[in-house]
């Protein structure tokens, strides 16, 4: 078999094994959590009989091992189970709870990725090209600054900026400034588009309206993840620039831009995509703070709510989705690393 196809299949198999192990960990961790959902739901005054009946109804009276296999078995059939919030005659499946939230999260993540990845690569390439020059220093300083602030701070600052657009000129602060300065600041603020500071969407929201509404969270997340990817791009390219074949390209009279793009970059993909994958995974699993700030109905908030109400099936499903995201993105990164290595792609 083609060695690349073999490696990819191998990694895929390993990914599935990892996912299986993660499912065990998730299940046992949640099974070991203190507290009882039935008691929490029915209140202090519930009789033991009522509690037992309720436990039977939602199936948590069985031994954990059996419950685990039922859970996994159902998932293999595409059934993620029912939420504990279901009532008799009114079944709420985990899938129907998660689906819209997952869509929103993926929407925000994709939009951020579409902005952040090209931006980070472009800045990284330019920083490598003009390494140690003023452009390099500036980009490094700015991206390091944005990554150093907590994300809620960045989020609120952006929201504040958008609000100031209308309120600045009448504020006391503006009054205290010299007139020309206040006017020009106002002029700059007015150049900021009037992004919505609340990203409330539902399943009826039209596509482009959705894009518009998640603009601020997407920008916030971009500011948070761009530094890491950009610095890795820069470092990976500069690392390559020390290779003998780069010297050769210089002696062939290639321009610095051609050297970076054609000679260094193709050999630098492996470390870059690893970091990109890591940051994209973060966009899916780590954005709950930004969701809260902009009141965006994503999966992060859903999971927090589910933990609060001890809705175990939803928590488990969310955790599993997060794990799968990590595994899948890292797998993709591995495959891209392999696919950009001519030694593996074109064996002797």
């Amino acid at each position: 078999m083609n060695p690349v196809a073999r490696t990819v299949l191998q990694r895929l198999g390993l990914g599935l094994v990892t996912l299986f192990i993660v499912s065990i960990i998730i299940f046992s961790a949640i099974a070991m959590l203190p507290g009882d959902f039935a008691k929490a739901m029915l209140g202090q005054s519930a009789t033991p009989e009522t509690v037992a009946a309720f436990q039977r109804e939602i199936g948590i009276d069985r031994p954990p091992v059996e419950r685990y296999f039922v859970w996994v078995g159902q998932m293999l059939h595409g059934d993620f189970g029912s939420s504990f919030a279901s009532r008799t005659g009114y079944r709420r499946t985990v899938a129907e709870i998660i689906a819209p939230r997952l869509y929103n999260t993926m929407f925000l993540a994709s939009m951020t990725a579409l902005i952040a990845v090209p931006l980070a690569l472009g800045l990284g390439i330019l920083a490598a090209l003009y390494r140690n020059g003023w452009f390099d220093r500036l980009v490094n300083a700015v991206t390091l600054t944005t990554i150093s602030f907590p994300e809620f701070f960045v989020a609120y600052m952006l929201a504040y900026l958008v609000i100031s657009r209308d309120t600045f000129i009448g504020s006391e602060f503006a009054q205290s400034l010299p007139h020309w300065l206040a006017v020009s600041l106002n002029w700059i603020l007015n150049a900021v588009p009037k992004f919505p500071t609340l990203s409330n969407v539902n399943d009826q929201t039209p596509f482009w309206d959705h894009v518009w509404r998640v603009a601020l969270p997407a920008i916030t997340l971009t500011l948070v993840i761009v530094a890491h990817m950009m610095r890795m791009t820069r470092a990976a390219i500069i690392n390559m620039l020390a290779s003998p074949y780069i010297d050769m390209a210089r002696l062939k009279g290639m321009s610095p831009m051609a050297i970076v793009l054609r000679h260094a970059l193709p050999n630098a993909w492996a470390p870059i995509v690893t970091v990109v994958a890591f940051n994209l995974a973060y966009l899916v699993v780590g954005v709950v703070v930004v969701e809260v700030v902009f009141v965006y109905p994503g999966i992060g908030q859903l999971m927090v709510d589910a933990v609060k109400s001890r809705d175990v099936p939803v928590v488990q499903a969310c955790a599993l989705i997060f794990a799968a995201t990590y595994i899948l993105l890292n797998l993709t990164a591995d495959i891209i690393s392999i696919a950009t290595n001519p030694r593996l792609l074109h064996p002797r």
Binding site: S243, P244, Y245, D247, M248, A249, R250, L251, K252, G253, M254, H263, P266, N267, T340, P342, R343
Partner: peptide
């Protein structure tokens, strides 16, 4: 460089771009 003055390096294996 490359057009009127060219260079042949010691280690061809390292001086050819693997990509």
């Amino acid at each position: 460089r490359g057009s009127r003055i060219a260079y042949v390096a010691q280690s061809a294996a390292a001086s050819f771009n693997p990509a």
